[in-house]
Amino acid sequence: MSASLVATEALTMTYAGGVTALADLTVDVRSGVTGLVGANGAGKSTLLKILLGLLEPTSGSVHVLGLDARGEGPAIRERVGYMPEHDCLPPDVSATEFCVHLGRMSGLPTTAARERTADVLRHVGLYEERYRPMGGYSTGMKQRVKLAQALVHDPDLVLLDEPTNGLDPAGRDDMLDLIRRIGSDFGISAVVTSHLLGELERTCDAVVVIDGGRLLRQSSTADVTAETPVVAVEVDGDPSPLAARLAEAGVEVEARGRLLHVDVADPAAYDVVRDACAELGLGLVRMERQRHRMVEVFSS
C-alpha cells in the first residue's frame, strides 16, 4: 500500500472569537486524486492552509509528505503545488512569464523553468495563448493558468481549491478532465476541494467528506457509489400496468415518472419483470442497476 501523502490526527482549528473551523479531524490521504468535499464553510480552505504550513492549528498533528506542517511549512511548499480559489493573476503579465517566474521562485534553473512552463501550458491547453497578457483571458483560461502554475515546479502533490469555480458546465468538464490527467501525464497526486458532489463522484479515486469541520466519511469513491439492490426499468409504453403486476407478485416497486425502480435483492425479481413485460405486451427498453450517490452521505 502507498504511503500517506497527508495524515492528520485529532486536528482542530479554532479562530479567535471561538469559531471552530476544524474539529478533531483525522484523515489519511494516499496517492491518486482525492476529493475534499463539503458545503461552503465546512473547513476545506482552512485545512489546505494548514497543510501548506500557512496556518497554525489549535491542536492535533498534521503531516504532509512525511513533513510536520507545524514547523516544516517551507519544505512542504517546495514539494507541493497550490491552486487558490480566488483570482490572483497579474493582468499585465503573460502566462509564460508568470509560470516561469514561479518556477524559478521554487528553485528551478531558468532553462528548466521555461521547459517546464511550456509542458504545463500545453497540458492545460494554453500553449497557443501563452504570450498574451492574462488580463485578457476568460475565466476558464485564468483557471487553467492557476492549475499550470501549481504544476510548474514538478511537485509531488497539488492542492486544488475549488478549481471549477466560476466555470460553465463545459468548462467544468474540461477542468475535471485535466485534473484526472495530472496523474497519468505527470505522475502527481492531487487533493481537490469542491462543494459540488457530482464533480468529485466522477473525478476522484477517494473522497473525504467534512461538514462543520468534522469528518463525515473517508473512503474510496467506488465504496461510496457502490451498486444498490435496485434496477431502473423502462418500457415502451405506460409503466403503470407493469408496476401493478410486479406489486401483485410481491416485488417491491416504486414509480418515478416513466421509470420503475424495482428491488432485485432477490434475483428472481428479474424473471418476474421479464415475464410480466411479455404477458402485458410491453417492450423492455432497459434495466439499469442503480448506484448510491455521494449526496446520500449528507442525507443519511
Rank of each mutant, 00 (worst) to 15 (best):
V207D: 01
L215G: 05
R181L: 11
V224D: 02
S184G: 06
A190I: 03
V208T: 06
D211Q: 15
H195F: 12
V192R: 02
V192C: 06
F186R: 03
D205R: 00
D211F: 09
D161M: 05
S184Y: 08
D173E: 12
N165L: 15
L176D: 04
L167S: 14
L160C: 13
N165G: 14
G212C: 09
L159K: 01
A170E: 15
L197S: 05
L215E: 02
T221L: 00
D173Y: 14
L178D: 06
V191M: 04
I210H: 06
L160H: 11
L200I: 03
V191F: 01
H195M: 12
E162T: 15
L215W: 07
S194C: 10
A170H: 12
V209P: 02
R217H: 08
V158L: 09
L176W: 04
R217E: 13
L216T: 10
R202T: 14
V224A: 05
G171N: 11
D168A: 09
G183W: 12
L176I: 09
T164V: 15
D173A: 15
S219T: 05
M175N: 07
L215N: 06
G166N: 13
S184H: 08
I179S: 09
I210R: 09
L216E: 07
L159F: 12
T221K: 02
I182L: 13
L176P: 06
V208W: 00
G171I: 12
D177R: 12
G198C: 12
N165F: 11
T164L: 06
V224I: 15
C204Y: 00
V207H: 00
N165V: 14
S219P: 04
L216D: 04
D223N: 08
D173M: 11
L197W: 02
A190W: 03
G212V: 12
D177Y: 11
D174V: 14
T193P: 13
V207L: 03
L178W: 03
L196I: 15
E199F: 06
D223W: 02
F186G: 08
S220F: 00
G213Y: 08
G198H: 14
L200F: 01
V208G: 01
F186D: 10
L159H: 05
R181I: 14
E201H: 07
A222W: 01
T225F: 04
T164R: 14
D185R: 05
D223M: 04
L215C: 10
C204W: 00
G212K: 15
R202Y: 03
E199W: 05
A190G: 06
N165M: 10
V158E: 07
R217T: 03
L178N: 09
L197V: 03
S184M: 07
V207Q: 01
T221R: 01
R217Y: 02
L216Q: 10
A170D: 15
D211P: 09
S189F: 02
A170P: 13
L159G: 02
G212D: 07
G212L: 11
L160W: 08
R180G: 12
I188N: 04
T193D: 14
G183I: 07
R181K: 11
S220C: 00
I210E: 02
H195T: 08
S194E: 06
